[in-house]
């Protein structure tokens, strides 16, 4: 059982740096340089991330992203495309040892995602975890997560749409017709929601953060101890950020 988890809160960071930081957490945890760590962060500017296996031109409206100067970044984790709204979204990432109750991949998704489920329930919302990696409110997706593993260490990161501009999300993300049909919807717009929509009042990402801290504390059964990122973490994050800026990486599929 994990007893203490370090907490980093990183508001409004550069998108490439954000992905670089998550990869740095994974590398440094594998090397035993840092303790298990939970990071809550936001984006500036807004950005799109895509899953490791996705073909970039099939899942993102690249012309529109370019016009709006919205970076599109390939993640090291699988899963689908995500719109990270600067003013409406919180992202989490966590690095843990993939042992004990975190050994099984699907079970580890469930445990980590229950941090968000708990946070939403604290707000009075009936959140449901839907395997593989979704959290639903009223049958609509409000959060998705993605996990990768290296040498018995897991990195999971995920999005929570607090007050995301869903019209912008619809303009940016392209979903295969076959996937929409299987969900019996004609547009992705019918399949997603935000915390604010479900609450019936606007909640900001900043206001969501204390709920997430409490939710993850309960879900993980751990004390969360806030610290600033270390200089070596920031340096490695910057190094990896260069990869996330490169055409070779982002357009490799």
């Amino acid at each position: 059982m994990v007893e203490e988890i370090r907490l980093i809160i990183d508001k409004h960071q550069d998108p490439h740096y954000n992905m670089g930081f998550d990869e740095a957490l994974l590398t440094l945890r594998v090397q035993g340089e840092i303790p298990p760590t939970l990071r809550l962060y936001m984006w500036d500017p807004s950005a799109v991330t895509i899953g490791y296996f996705q073909r970039i031109r099939d899942v993102v409206n690249l012309d529109y992203a370019l016009e709006k100067k919205i970076p599109v970044i390939r993640r090291i984790t699988g899963g689908g495309a995500v719109y990270h709204d600067r003013d409406g979204e919180v992202t989490y990432s966590i690095v843990l040892d993939a042992r004990g109750r975190f050994t099984d991949v699907q079970e580890s998704y469930r445990i980590i995602c229950s941090g968000i489920v708990e946070a939403l329930r604290d707000l009075g919302l009936e959140a449901i975890f839907k395997p593989v990696n979704d959290i639903l409110l009223n049958g609509r997706k409000v959060s998705g997560s993605a996990q990768t593993r290296r040498k018995n260490t897991l990195l999971q990161h995920g999005t929570l749409m607090v007050s995301t501009n869903l019209d912008e999300l619809v303009r940016l993300l392209v979903v295969p017709r076959e996937k929409l049909e299987s969900h019996r919807v004609s547009s992705i717009r019918e399949r997603v929601t935000t915390v604010s929509i479900e609450l019936g009042k606007t909640l900001s990402p900043e206001e969501m953060i204390p709920y997430l801290i409490e939710g993850f504390r309960k879900a993980l059964g751990a004390q969360l101890i806030e610290e600033k990122p270390s200089p070596s973490e920031e340096k490695l994050a910057e190094k990896y950020a260069e990869k996330y800026r490169s055409i070779e990486w982002n357009y490799k599929r």
């Binding site: 899953g51 490791y52 296996f53 996705q54 073909r55 099939d58 090291i76 984790t77 699988g78 899963g79 689908g80 495309a81 991949v105 395997p131 593989v132 990696n133 993605a146 996990q147 990768t148 593993r149 295969p176 076959e178 996937k179 599929r253």
Partner: peptide, 29 residues
């Protein structure tokens, strides 16, 4: 639960190139 989107170039009944795209997960990637 996930979508597999596969692209391929085929020549004479053989795969010249194939990409298993999609929003799934594989360990190791």
């Amino acid at each position: 639960g996930k979508t597999l989107t596969v692209y391929a170039k085929v020549n004479n009944g053989r795969l010249e190139e194939i990409v298993f795209g999609g929003d799934y997960f594989a360990y190791p990637e």
